[in-house]
Amino acid sequence: MEREEIDHIARLCRLELTDAEAERLRGDLERILEHGRRLGALELEGLQPSPLIPVMELEGLRADVARPGLDPGQVAAIAPRQRAGRIEVPPVAGH
């Protein structure tokens, strides 16, 4: 895998990598790709793709009925920081 590709993926993930980190991830990604190549080499001629979950019928879907979500205390408990109800998140790189 080229370093360029590693950098591109890091950009998509909004990650800044040191050279050492990039090298370690290159090894990880290579192993993932190798696994994909092994799957790709399987003989699947004539086989239909099977859905991971059986096909759902429309009647099986949820009726459009609302119910209250979490109460504000529960949301506050899982939010690292809030301001006037809004949850703080890391600022987006390049904004």
């Binding site: 209250p68 979500g69 949301v75 006037a84």
Partner: peptide, 17 residues
């Protein structure tokens, strides 16, 4: 999910897992 669809309510009051 079953959270209500609303507009203009206080932030994060219609959220669930």
């Amino acid at each position: 999910c079953r959270c209500p669809v609303t507009f203009g309510d206080a932030p994060n009051t219609h959220v669930c897992p």
